[in-house]
Design a protein around this nucleic acid. Structure first.
Lengths: 142, 142
DNA sequence: AATCTACATTATAATAATTCTAAACTATTG
DNA sequence: CAATAGTTTAGAATTATTATAATGTAGATT
């Protein structure tokens, strides 16, 4: 996804019709300096705050999933209760702050390359992701 | 959790009352050679098949969470739709077969030790876990 | 530019997973 | 063996997500 605009073209390129809602969502997600993490709920709030028109919850789900399928978003599973999505679709690892429930990207340099010595026979490795759970020094768990 | 029996004592040790249901659940989960993974649904089925008495779904949830809190079970997040639990509570990594949705433990030797070079300030690392997603060579995603 | 068609959006209903509730039950303590 | 604090239970409630079916719209065709 580009740093700035021409979302219409980008959507068309991957075969998604550039509807008003999809363009709006692109603006909210990608017109910013840094990539970020969000839940569907976060996104609904962000859109309804930034925009003056309503957007249906179903549309947000549909569109997020459409974007995910096309590689514009990545889903991250940390918590069985929440689905997080990441606008950073490149392979990278995460810290998860168990106090604040905040998800933080690792820089490339934060974690050495993972060496997988063995694989499941007949299978191809699709991804290797590390999750580092952290918390304040006092209370350990949620 | 022990290889065999005295679940009553073990439950008492951590301050859980050894009720009929909890002892049954221990038997189903820990009277076996190898550790394994399950969802709440799997477990309900297993219990209702192995036992002749009914167990309430709520009890299974309560008991699984009680066991988790006491370190008898570990939750694994892979899929936002399903909660997996693991009777292997030691630190270890996983393969996840995206074709079959099967979760497979990594042996200690399968993955080199992960080296975390940087951490979030003021936080302690609670766990470092790797998830290796694999799939058949043909179709890549679900 | 009007029409057509396939795809999108929408509000709402349906489903699924999990948690809550409050009444009945039971393991432990005294 | 009575008291009580923790447990189980069925079912209701809640939450997240997906399905439905009617309406709307983008893009191609005239």
């Amino acid at each position: 996804m580009p740093k700035n605009c021409n979302f219409i073209g980008k959507l068309r390129e991957v075969g998604l019709r550039p509807t008003k809602q999809r363009i709006k969502m692109c603006e909210v997600l990608y017109n910013r300096e840094k990539t970020f993490h969000f839940t569907i709920n976060d996104l609904v709030k962000m859109i309804s705050e930034k925009m003056n028109e309503k957007i249906s919850l179903a549309t947000v789900y549909n569109t997020v999933h459409a974007f995910e399928k096309k590689g514009y978003l990545k889903e991250i599973s940390i918590d069985s209760h929440k689905s997080y999505f990441d606008t950073n679709t490149s392979a990278h690892h995460h810290f998860f702050d168990e106090d604040t429930h905040e998800l933080i990207d690792c820089d490339e340099s934060d974690i050495d390359k993972i060496n997988i010595r063995k694989n499941i026979t007949g299978k191809k490795i699709n991804s290797v992701e590390v999750l580092v759970r952290v918390a304040g020094d006092n209370q350990t768990q949620k």
